[in-house]
Amino acid sequence: MGGSGLVVHDLSVGYGPVRALRRVSLEVPEGAVVTVLGGNGAGKSTLLRAISRTLSFHGGAVTEGGVRLGDRRLDALPPDRVVAAGVSQVPEGRRVFARMTVADNLRAGALGGTRSGRAAALERVHELFPVLAERAGQRAGLLSGGEQQMLAVARALMAGPKVLLLDEPSLGLAPLMARRIADTVREINAQGTSVLLVEQNAALALRLATRAYVLEVGEVALSGPADELAASDEVRRRYLGVVDEGAVADAEQAGGARRTLTRWQGEDA
């Protein structure tokens, strides 16, 4: 693996004696959308924190391996220098500054940039999210959940990242708002920003991505083109809620009870 994209190589992470990731490798080529799937506790958020160098805030540490963006190592940088190098993260749960205005939240995302760079970034996010321009003077905590997610994404974009790390952007949103967020991810990518997406709605994630990785208990269990994984019986059964109807019919005829698979999300956004 190599080139000008984001490369994670043999990354292992621990929280004290607990191993959360074991020799995980993946690549986000320049201009691509890559998704990471997996159940709760698989290590998806830990992976993003390791890339953004925010693990220490959660009591974790990288024990092996490294992360590069192009020719630059990220694993030796503090979090603010990772952002300056071109990688911004949108954490799970939005995490906006609730008592600050929308405008001040966006300014916080652009700290350290030039005046012209901040102006260009603000114009970009207002084009992507017109509602944020309309609500510039409103406290962020008074926005709806979907609007707060827009603000969290916009704040990360204010730094002008080459790679955007998105952690569960549709979590807790109504299907219509989840679709709007998905459309925005497509537009962000079309404008030249690579995206590494962790998303609990596997169907949505596989439609957005060109390549996918499946984490299980901190290790990469499957990887490949997103359309191939979407067609995989194993992925369809475990993450898309699709069952083999013929096998179910055979089981019922044999007197077995019909099994119901738990979906990650009831609505297909």
Rank of each mutant, 00 (worst) to 15 (best):
G2D: 09
G5R: 01
G5F: 02
V8S: 01
Y15N: 03
Y15C: 03
P17E: 13
P17H: 08
V18R: 10
L21I: 09
L21N: 12
R23I: 03
R23F: 06
E30D: 14
G31C: 14
A32Q: 12
A32E: 14
V33L: 10
T35N: 08
T35I: 09
G38C: 03
N40P: 07
A42S: 15
S45L: 11
A50R: 11
I51F: 05
I51S: 08
T54Q: 05
H58A: 13
A61C: 00
A61Q: 10
E64T: 08
G66Y: 06
R68K: 04
G70V: 12
G70H: 14
R72N: 06
D75Q: 11
A76Y: 09
A76S: 14
L77I: 14
R81Q: 14
R81D: 14
A85W: 12
V87A: 11
V87M: 14
V90T: 13
E92H: 13
E92F: 08
R94M: 11
R95Y: 10
V96N: 07
V102I: 01
D104I: 02
N105K: 13
A108K: 05
G109N: 02
G109L: 04
G112D: 00
G113W: 09
G113A: 10
G113D: 05
T114W: 06
T114L: 04
A119C: 09
A121M: 14
H126F: 10
P130D: 02
V131R: 15
V131I: 15
L132T: 07
L132Y: 07
A133W: 02
E134T: 10
A136T: 02
A136H: 05
G137D: 13
R139D: 07
R139C: 06
R139P: 05
G141K: 06
G141W: 03
S144E: 04
G145L: 01
E147T: 01
L151Y: 03
L157F: 02
L157K: 00
K162I: 00
V163H: 02
L164W: 03
L164D: 01
L165I: 07
L165V: 04
D167T: 00
E168W: 08
A174R: 13
L176D: 05
R179W: 03
I181S: 04
D183S: 07
N189W: 06
Q191D: 06
V195D: 10
V198S: 07
V198I: 10
Q200N: 00
A202T: 12
A203W: 05
R211F: 12
G218C: 04
E219S: 09
V220D: 03
D227T: 11
A230I: 11
D233W: 00
D233Q: 01
R236Q: 15
R236A: 15
Y239M: 13
Y239D: 14
D244H: 06
E245K: 02
A249T: 10
G256I: 02
A257M: 12
R258L: 02
R259E: 14
R259M: 11
L261S: 03
L261A: 06
W264P: 05
W264M: 14
A269L: 05
